[in-house]
Computed example of a mutant assay.
Amino acid sequence: MNASTASALILLLVAAGAARADESADRPLRLIGSLQGKGAVARSFVIDGWVKPGDGDNQTSVEGWFSGLEDDPPHGAVQGSCVESHCALTVSTSDGKLSFTGELLDPKAPAPARFTAKDEDDKVVAQGTATIGPLTGPVPGLGALAAPDAVRAPEFDQLLVWNHLSAPSGSVSDEPIGDSERDSLADWQKTQNRPGTGLLFAADLAGLRAGAAAARKAAGWTDLGDKAHGWAGGYPAALLPRAERRAGEQRFASADGKATLAYAVGAPMTDAAFDALVERETGDHPERSDVGYNRVNGDMDLHYQQAGVVHVQAWHNHEGGLARMEFLYPAAAADTYDQIGAIIASTFVVSDDVKP
């Protein structure tokens, strides 16, 4: 084999390896379409999704978000599968289900497809044809979508919380924003006098980031944590200016000492010990009110009111360590501390690699 032949073979192998890598990676899929026929539930719509590798050759799956483009549009999660370019997608909305079939994977131009709409009782309420093609520019009348990777779920959750919106708590998975985030985004869009689509536009992302920055500044928010030790959190220095370390805890308090916040990372509990802690904390306590808690494996958050004091607590028990947070404040000062309590709880994020 001469040198030129060897070089050509190397280039072919590199190109083949790159192609296989591309095939194994998730990639964005953005479509815009319209429905025709009597009873069409959304005359025009956008699908903002991701194409993921499937179970076999030439098979892929699709996950993402669908929204109509009217003032009060139907919207919901999209799921489906494709064989080569032919796809069957299903949208779950508050009113039922909407399904599409056609050549939907990476279309180069608008193409015909079929749709069926069913109500909550699985009864067909509309069906007909659709025209679906690539979204290559701004959404007419609404603007440009944010870039597919402009923000991921962990950061977006924090943006929602700082803008006083509900968000999944403790997200550490580097995934695209999900259905719950989209629903909260749709609610926020309505407060901005815009259609609640749940589609993330570039202007929305800029607005959420600006709102979060202003709220963080007003609270004097100071980030805490240690990436090497697998946790992150923070405290509002404007409300809790007194800081100290005591018995392995980082502690913060209001000027009058009536509101306190503590973080600690220590040795892990055994499963039995953590079960006992959960049972003890969530058991019957007649002196407590407004009790709420959530447990998933070794992670638990709890809030309640007792003797005029609000308790906001979280535990994250993993193989390497136990991280905990406790925020206490007077119930009479709820207007001052309720929102920042939600932020403290949501920004306390612990990974599986947590350690003392």
Rank of each mutant, 00 (worst) to 15 (best):
M1P: 14
N2D: 14
A6C: 15
L12E: 15
L13E: 08
R20S: 10
R20V: 11
R30Q: 13
I32S: 13
I32Q: 10
G33Y: 01
S34P: 06
G37P: 06
A40P: 11
A42W: 05
F45S: 04
V46Y: 07
D48G: 01
W50T: 00
Q59D: 14
S61I: 03
W65K: 03
W65Y: 02
W65P: 04
F66R: 03
S67A: 08
L69H: 03
H75P: 05
V78F: 12
G80E: 07
E84Q: 08
H86E: 13
T90M: 01
V91F: 10
D95F: 05
T101F: 11
A111T: 13
D121K: 12
V124T: 15
V125I: 11
G128D: 05
A130H: 03
T131P: 00
I132V: 05
G141R: 05
G143A: 10
G143N: 07
V151Q: 04
R152H: 10
P154V: 01
S171K: 05
I177V: 07
E181C: 08
A186R: 00
D187L: 12
Q189F: 00
Q189M: 04
R194Q: 13
T197I: 04
G198W: 00
L199E: 03
A202D: 08
A203I: 04
A203H: 04
G207N: 00
L208D: 04
G211C: 11
A215W: 01
R216W: 12
K217R: 00
K217T: 03
A219Y: 06
G220D: 10
T222D: 03
D223T: 13
D223P: 13
L224I: 12
D226K: 07
D226R: 06
A228V: 05
A228C: 05
G234Q: 09
P236C: 14
P241A: 08
R242S: 07
A243P: 12
R245K: 14
R245M: 09
G248H: 10
Q250D: 12
F252Q: 09
S254E: 07
T260L: 13
G266C: 14
A267W: 01
P268R: 07
T270V: 02
A272P: 06
D275T: 00
V278P: 14
E279F: 13
G283I: 02
P286M: 13
P286E: 14
E287T: 14
E287K: 15
S289D: 08
G292C: 08
Y293W: 10
V310N: 15
H311Y: 12
V312A: 12
Q313P: 04
E319P: 02
G321E: 07
R324W: 14
P330Y: 10
A334M: 09
D335R: 07
I340R: 03
G341T: 12
A345G: 10
V350A: 08
S351T: 09
S351F: 02
K355A: 01
